[in-house]
């Protein structure tokens, strides 16, 4: 489904701030895979997602989604294949537009935008049904401006928008990191429901090792722009946080993950 072949991305090349964010990075996802991604700060997790989404061009390598080479496609063209939810709840939605209008924008992802009406009555009924899945009462606030919603509500809405048109690949970039634990759990639960319902191929970055173990069928750990640990199936189910920490210490030579990983476990 997703094939990343030997991708390299260097930020600020030739300066003292040079940073090799992705170092000959390769990863292949099968259809229906739900992969959780963990790793310390600067491991290249978000860079990998941005490379897939096409936020900027990569320096070397190839990215294929469902057999299509998207390496040279611009961000908005790749959107056809991708559903994305960002870490910052403000990033995924348009604050000054209504809930229905945001959903209508997402409904047209990958399609030509014509001079037809931006939202139809029929669509709105459909959105109401879909919003009920979130269990946040948003179905009764269809025309409310998204800026009035809380971070958790916005993140749940972004999730719905990302999956409104079934994406080939769902990219979740620490989408619960900015939420309080209760809201985060709720959003994660909704994620699980939607991913299972639509059998979505999913890549989820998380800083929470428990979540990384509890969700998905495969787990990868990144360090210095590479995959250093790749585990799936039964083996993954039997993992413990302590195993991951040990693994991490092994590769990083004792230096420990990061404060956030410690605090949340």
């Amino acid at each position: 489904m997703l094939e990343i072949r030997n991708v390299t991305k260097v930020f600020n090349p030739g300066t003292v701030n040079e940073k090799v964010a992705l170092n000959d990075f390769s990863l292949t996802l099968e259809e229906g895979d739900f992969v959780t991604v963990i790793g310390g700060n600067g491991a290249g997790k978000s860079t990998m997602m941005n490379a897939i989404a096409g936020v900027w061009p990569v320096d070397a390598g190839q990215i294929l989604i469902d057999g299509v080479d998207v390496t040279k496609l611009s961000e908005h063209k790749r959107a056809k294949y991708l559903g994305r939810v960002f870490q910052d709840p403000m990033t995924g939605t348009a604050a000054t537009m209504g809930i229905d209008e945001n959903l209508a924008l997402a409904k047209r992802r990958g399609k030509f935008r014509s001079l037809k009406g931006g939202t139809s009555k029929k669509e709105r009924e459909e959105y109401k049904e879909l919003l009920k899945i979130l269990g946040l009462g948003l179905e009764d606030r269809l025309t409310s401006k998204v800026g009035l919603l809380s971070g958790g509500q916005r993140q749940a809405l972004t999730l719905l928008m990302a999956t409104l048109v079934k994406p080939k690949l769902l990219l979740l970039d620490e989408h619960t990191a900015a939420l309080d634990p209760k809201t985060a759990a709720k959003v994660l639960e909704t994620t699980e429901v939607i991913v299972n319902r639509d059998h979505l191929t999913t890549l989820m970055i998380t800083h929470n090792m428990k979540d990384a173990i509890a969700h998905g069928n495969r787990l990868i750990m990144m360090h210095e722009g590479r995959v250093i640990y790749d585990v799936r199936g039964e083996e993954k189910k039997n993992l413990h946080v302590s195993d991951l920490l040990k693994k991490f210490e092994e590769v990083s030579g004792g230096e420990f993950a990061n404060d956030r990983m410690m605090l949340t476990n």
């Binding site: 989404a53 995924g92 348009a94 537009m97 924008l105 931006g118």
Partner: peptide, 27 residues
């Protein structure tokens, strides 16, 4: 116009260009 698909895309671009590109809008 600003109620059409194209017009909505334009409004979204002004409001949040990251989100717009993620939704396939050529900002």
């Amino acid at each position: 116009f600003f109620g059409t698909e194209l017009g909505c895309a334009l409004r979204a671009t002004g409001c949040n260009s990251n989100m717009s590109r993620a939704q396939g809008i050529n900002t």
